[in-house]
Design a protein around this nucleic acid. Structure first.
Length: 506
DNA sequence: ATAGGGTTAG
């Protein structure tokens, strides 16, 4: 695009002063906005845009509007983006650059319907338009829609295939894997020399569990860029092969922040003393400014804690000038796993804007204590949780767990009735009733589960048999056990628990 | 204009 602009400028420079007063000012605006956007200074780019609009009544070029839309999309400023949309002249609305930018804007702001209607009414649909729609669907977790759209495309280019790989990686299913394999075998061979495409391909193969295929592809590539190592390491971690991820890391000459981050994740996964040594060596050898990357620091602390060195993690945490919620979260997790729930709670009280994970960690700490004070804290915190966190299933589950562990079954029951029903939450409440010697409640919950059409799992049946064992009613036991599928009756632990039950009811 | 690999969670 810059080349096009430069061409414009050359024309205007040679065509007299009069034009150079009007046009180059918009040109300058556009170049400056692009520079700011490239530096991720989106707000500044938009301020410049506003200032220019105030002082000039002239129509803006499509290049400038594209930059303004891009900045609005990146900061997810729907209000501003819509205003610009209204401001666009009708003949410019057919411009394909503007169309793509508008779709991108609405998709980034989760306004899928508005993006869809722009797409549907567009007179011409370019590959870029399809690409923006597909990317938007992925962003809004409507992955299958992205794949459906892909199937409409006759000659996908490299970018479209990259986006398709992203969709496949998000799904991680066998269906996604076979689609990717089919598409990659049919695409022009020279696409394989596009290393960004190759990275996405490695990523999707790994996320769908085809480690061997990814390895073969990685090994045959003569040129290997860092992102390819990153995709492989991420894939090994995902497929529980952390050691392989570490081995691959050792082959990298100049690791960047991303692959080091992946290394720390792998080390955290292993949690061995070798992993601890490696974490210490790499963190001491990496450039000092990496420590101010808070995402990287979070992984580093996690690795140290999981490998058992809480003291070192604490020291680094205290040394960090800037502290973000995830950094508190990882420390709280560390205290929780080391049975230091009180320290975890103290840390929570220092957080200015707790995120969802912070709340989860607090609930875990309260569950660990199981005291009356802990219950009071849970109730105090409940009123502080922002409403949008209530869609986070993890948060509700750990909240339920904390209430049960602190013995507040009535509040737990209310929460369960409001939650999306699941085996996990039922199992949690059942084992709570079992521990507090309420076997009748366990049977009651089992019936409610059946009414909710939830498929019981191993844990549920185990709780059920133990509850029957507590009650000790032979005919009730016989009647209930008939409902357990044979596949579960073959399990050793189920069989042992059953034996205990028959003994106690005779 | 749409394009790659990264943190904490039941």
């Amino acid at each position: 695009m810059l080349k096009k602009l430069l061409d414009h400028r050359l024309i205007f420079l040679t065509s007299g002063i009069k034009r150079s007063v009007i046009i180059p000012s918009d040109f300058d605006l556009c170049t400056q906005m692009k520079l700011l956007n490239d530096k991720k200074k989106f707000k500044e780019a938009l301020e410049l845009f506003d200032k220019y609009k105030e002082n000039n009544n002239k129509t803006l070029s499509s290049y400038t509007i594209t930059q303004a839309l891009k900045a609005s999309a990146r900061i997810r400023d729907l209000q501003r983006g819509s205003t610009i949309h209204q401001f666009i002249s009708s003949d410019m609305k057919d411009n394909s650059y503007i169309l793509v930018s508008l779709i991108h804007l609405y998709m980034q702001c989760s306004e899928v319907t508005r993006a869809q209607s722009l797409f549907d009414t567009a007179s011409e649909k370019s590959l870029h338009t399809y690409g923006a729609m597909m990317k938007g669907y992925i962003k809004n977790h409507m992955t299958n829609k992205a794949i459906d759209l892909f199937k409409e495309i006759k000659n996908p280019d490299e970018v479209i295939i990259i986006i398709l790989c992203n969709a496949g990686a998000q799904l991680g299913t066998n269906e996604a894997l076979s689609l990717i394999k089919k598409v990659s075998s049919q695409m022009p061979k020279h696409f394989y020399s596009n290393l960004r495409l190759l990275t996405s391909l490695l990523d999707v193969l790994m996320q769908c569990g085809d480690v061997k295929h990814a390895q073969a592809l990685f090994d045959t590539s003569t040129t290997k860029i860092l992102s390819m190592y990153g995709a492989m390491m991420k894939g090994y971690i995902k497929n529980n092969m952390a050691t392989k991820a570490i081995d691959l890391f050792k082959e990298i000459k100049d690791p960047d922040e991303i692959v080091i981050n992946l290394l720390f994740t792998a080390c955290a996964e292993l949690g061995t003393s070798e992993a601890l040594n490696l974490t210490k060596i790499v963190s001491s050898q990496m450039p000092k400014h990496f420590y101010s990357n808070l995402r990287l620091l979070t992984s580093l602390l996690d690795a140290l804690i999981q490998c058992g060195n809480v003291t070192h993690a604490e020291a680094l945490f205290n040394r960090s000038i800037k502290k973000i919620s995830p950094l508190y979260g990882v420390m709280m997790k560390g205290y929780n796993t080391n049975n230091m729930a009180n320290k975890s709670i103290d840390l929570f009280n220092e957080i200015e804007n707790p995120d969802d994970v912070n709340f989860i960690m607090l609930f875990n700490a309260c569950a660990q204590l199981g005291t009356h004070e802990a219950l009071n804290l849970i109730k105090k915190v409940l009123s502080q949780i922002p409403k949008h966190f209530y869609s986070n299933f993890h948060l509700l589950t750990s909240q339920l767990d904390a209430l049960i562990k602190c013995g507040d079954f009535s509040t737990a029951e209310i929460l369960l009735s409001k939650m999306k029903k699941s085996v996990i939450s039922y199992g949690n409440l059942m084992s709570g009733y079992l521990k507090t010697d309420n076997p009748e409640k366990v049977l009651d919950l089992f019936d409610r589960m059946k009414n909710d059409n939830i498929e019981p799992d191993f844990i549920i049946y185990l709780c059920l048999i133990k509850a029957l064992s507590h009650i000790g009613d032979y005919s009730l036991s016989q009647l209930t056990v008939q409902q357990i599928p044979n596949s579960f009756l073959l399990n050793d632990r189920i069989q042992n628990t059953l034996i205990d039950m028959w003994v106690s009811s005779n």
